[in-house]
């Protein structure tokens, strides 16, 4: 399957420009909710949450020059904390990289591309607990497509997308899926 084209049954719901606008808005919301840049750490969940966290960090730095975008972003691998390890083919774990400041007493914003069942975020919360004790954990997602299976909600949402369960929401970023840079919905089988 090619990632740079869309099939006949798929439609673009967010363009590159839409994504950029959504991230700008989320960056402002984050600063607002935190009453400034202090103690902020963005942890991206692989694969696409990490480049989104990097983009968000640059937005934050653009708004507040006191922020060094390189120093507040981390990568949080949640593979080992998933609740479906024994139901899926084996997944190799990936690296976790925290900012040098660590996460103790920080305001951690988890960043992911799509919020769906909520199980990935549940795993991420468990992973965070084993790494340290943040003061607050918030959640930022580009797309919330509904169908939650756990009592989890996002603090910052780029776009709420009502979907059918059979549909697939695909976020395609330059960093991971280039040259595509959009969000598409593909019809289910």
């Amino acid at each position: 399957m090619s990632t740079s084209s869309t099939g006949p049954t798929s439609r673009v719901v967010l363009t590159a420009a839409d994504i950029d606008r959504a991230l700008t808005r989320i960056a402002h919301e984050i600063l607002e909710a935190n009453k400034g840049p202090q103690d902020l750490v963005l942890l991206g969940i692989p694969r696409r949450g990490y480049p989104l966290a990097q983009r968000l960090a640059r937005k934050l730095a653009a708004t507040d020059p006191g922020i060094d975008p390189e120093r507040i972003v981390g990568l949080l691998d949640v593979t080992m904390f998933r609740d479906d390890l024994s139901r899926q083919p084996t997944r190799a774990p990936g690296p976790t990289q925290l900012p040098s400041t660590g996460i103790d007493n920080k305001v951690v914003v988890l960043v992911d591309d799509v919020l769906y069942s909520g199980r990935t975020i549940r795993a991420a919360l468990d992973a965070i607990v084993d790494l340290g004790r943040p003061r607050v954990v918030r959640l930022a997602v580009l797309v919330d497509r509904g169908h939650r299976e756990l009592p989890i909600r996002a603090d910052h949402v780029g776009k709420n997308l009502p979907t059918a369960s059979a549909e697939k929401v695909r976020v395609r970023l330059e960093e991971t899926d280039g040259p595509a840079n959009d969000v598409v919905i593909e019809a289910g089988e």
């Binding site: 593979t79 080992m80 904390f81 390890l85 468990d126 084993d130 790494l131 340290g132």
Partner: peptide, 8 residues
């Protein structure tokens, strides 16, 4: 790490 254990 702080907790030297994974739930996997």
């Amino acid at each position: 790490r702080e907790v030297k254990k994974l739930p996997a």
